[in-house]
């Protein structure tokens, strides 16, 4: 029971951290709750579909479909997070500064909401499909404590949700003048971490060269399966043994999004 709780907790945690950060970052966007809930539901439906199609997905691209699929999902998520952050650096302040802005620029706000929807849905889909597969395996395995394992799974799900919620509640307590910087730094790190994970899947599929693997080994310093290691992996893409290509993906995503934010921020303040 404990083993299954941990597996489900780890998968839930990654999605919950993303949801917590995005929910906090968009808490002033009108209509955000509905889009968040819709993203969650769409993600769950997608997760079950993907889990059921695991065999079929894996067989695509001569056995490397799973890596390509994961890399594609991560790639789209990085683009969405980038768009979100750049949009926020242009509109975030006006959203916070006055209630007047509610309803202002509805088209833009709608687009931000659909990006929010996509980010949540993709996060739940990716982490949820592995959880669904694991629990399905347990449920179909004959006898031997399938029931307690499922209970453990539910426990893990609850624990992961609590951590995501705590992050959300904590972020909302940040004073307004630091709030946008704090959430946009978190989103920036999320995006860069996902880019690095996408690179890892492409290396695993032998689609891109690893360029020295590992670049370094910090597993003795900060073990990847320690609580802090898991948390930092979910928040900022911490990898104890990254390949050179992962670092390039990380840096390119980080720098590109940061430049995009700077440019839009400057433009919106001169307007």
């Amino acid at each position: 029971m404990f083993g299954s709780a941990i597996i489900v907790f780890r998968e839930t945690l990654e999605a919950a951290l993303i949801i917590g950060i995005i929910a906090a970052a968009t808490h002033q966007v009108p209509g955000r709750n509905r889009w968040l809930a819709a993203g969650l539901l769409a993600g769950l439906a997608g997760a079950i579909t993907v889990a059921a199609a695991t065999g079929a997905i894996a067989e695509m691209a001569s056995g490397l479909g799973q890596e390509l699929f994961n890399a594609a999902i991560l790639g789209i998520a990085v683009l969405m997070l980038a768009w979100h952050n750049i949009w926020m650096s242009a509109h975030g302040k006006e959203l916070a500064s006055s209630a007047r802005s509610t309803g202002h620029d509805i088209g833009e706000g709608k687009r931000e909401c659909s990006v929010l929807f996509a980010i949540i849905a993709l996060a739940v889909l990716r982490e949820g499909s592995e959880t669904a597969l694991f629990l399905y395996g347990i449920a179909t395995a004959d006898g031997q404590g399938g029931h307690t394992t499922l209970m453990g799974g539910l426990l893990g799900l609850a624990a992961g949700t609590v951590v995501g919620w705590a992050l959300y509640a904590g972020l909302l307590r940040i004073p307004l003048r630091w709030f946008f910087s704090a959430t946009s730094v978190l989103v920036l790190l999320l995006a860069a971490g996902m880019a690095s994970q996408a690179a890892r899947f492409l290396i695993q599929a032998d689609m891109v060269p690893s360029l020295a693997e590992p670049m370094w080994d910090s597993s003795a310093l900060l073990p990847p399966d320690s609580a802090l290691g898991i948390l930092l992996h979910g928040l900022a893409g911490y990898d104890a043994r990254p390949a050179g290509m992962q670092i390039i993906f990380y840096a390119v995503a980080f720098i590109t999004i940061a430049i995009g934010m700077k440019l839009t921020n400057r433009k919106s303040s001169t307007n």
Binding site: T54, A58, E59, L64, Q66, L133
Partner: peptide, 28 residues
């Protein structure tokens, strides 16, 4: 018949393998 996830921190690899199927993982 049940799915498994091949995982290694040392190799930095992670891949789900559906029940009764086979897969390829590149390492090194």
């Amino acid at each position: 018949a049940t799915p498994e996830e091949f995982e290694s921190h040392e190799l930095n690899r992670e891949k789900v393998i559906a029940g009764n199927s086979s897969t390829t993982i590149y390492v090194g």
